[in-house]
Design a binder for these strands. Structure first.
Lengths: 129, 129
DNA sequence: CGGGATCCAATACGATACTG
DNA sequence: CAGTATCGTATTGGATCCCG
């Protein structure tokens, strides 16, 4: 499918559901969690450590949403202390390439964007003064 | 760069700036606007029509952010009535492929995700009842 | 250890009214 | 036409406490 066809479908009217799903994929933590689950199954606490800054609450909520959408599998081991592991489903893994592509783009353009922001702020200041 | 290297860089500590930028790209309207600017320069009102559901306020705000980040150029024509056109900068255009890849993924998996959600709700109901 | 429940602050967003 | 300003609501997310 060409880029142009993509844009047409994105803009299409039926796109309300699509927008909702895009919103959910593109929130603050989803991409990070998916990226972190790339290699293997990971425990809850390990996830929390590997994603600095995420709160327990948001980790739980985001994982539940991913589970609900069939992108992540949750395995509870009947042990004491309890052990819960998360891993990507095949669908979840299929999200990896585009997700990493976007993240890679952001990574590449951080310097450019920061410079552009600085220049913009400077212009704003100049306009005021 | 391999997927694995990508994930390492995403998870890295310096990632606070990266996360902030990813957040901004992945908000409710940015991807839609970028996708809509794909082909050519578009006027403010036309953008509003091509992105059903966006409010004037959010269109303005998001466009300003994109301009600030150097992804969109704003051209004001000295006419009456005024005419303002927006177009992607080269950096903005470079965002197009990964953005469309993600949107394409979402599009492909809408049915699967909706089915998974329905099944999940059903399980939850069963657990309650 | 994993995570549910609650409270609270920040902010994102929409609706409306006004302007050059 | 292309915004800006203001207001009110809805959502997001962190902090904290508690529980099996």
């Amino acid at each position: 499918m060409s880029d142009y066809e993509h844009t047409c479908m994105i803009r299409g009217d039926g796109g309300k559901t699509l927008r909702a799903i895009l919103d959910q994929i593109c929130n603050k933590w989803t991409l990070l969690i998916v990226a972190t689950l790339d290699q293997s199954r990971v425990r809850f606490t390990d996830l929390q450590h590997q994603i600095p800054g995420i709160s327990q609450r948001m980790l739980t909520l985001t994982l539940r949403n991913l589970e609900r959408d069939g992108l992540v599998d949750r395995t509870v081991h009947a042990e004491v202390p309890p052990r819960v592991e998360y891993e990507l489903t095949p669908t979840g893994k299929s999200l990896l390439p585009p997700a990493l592509a976007l993240a890679g783009w952001a990574l590449q353009h951080v310097p450019h964007i920061e410079a552009s922001r600085a220049a913009y702020e400077k212009r704003s200041q100049a306009a005021i003064g």
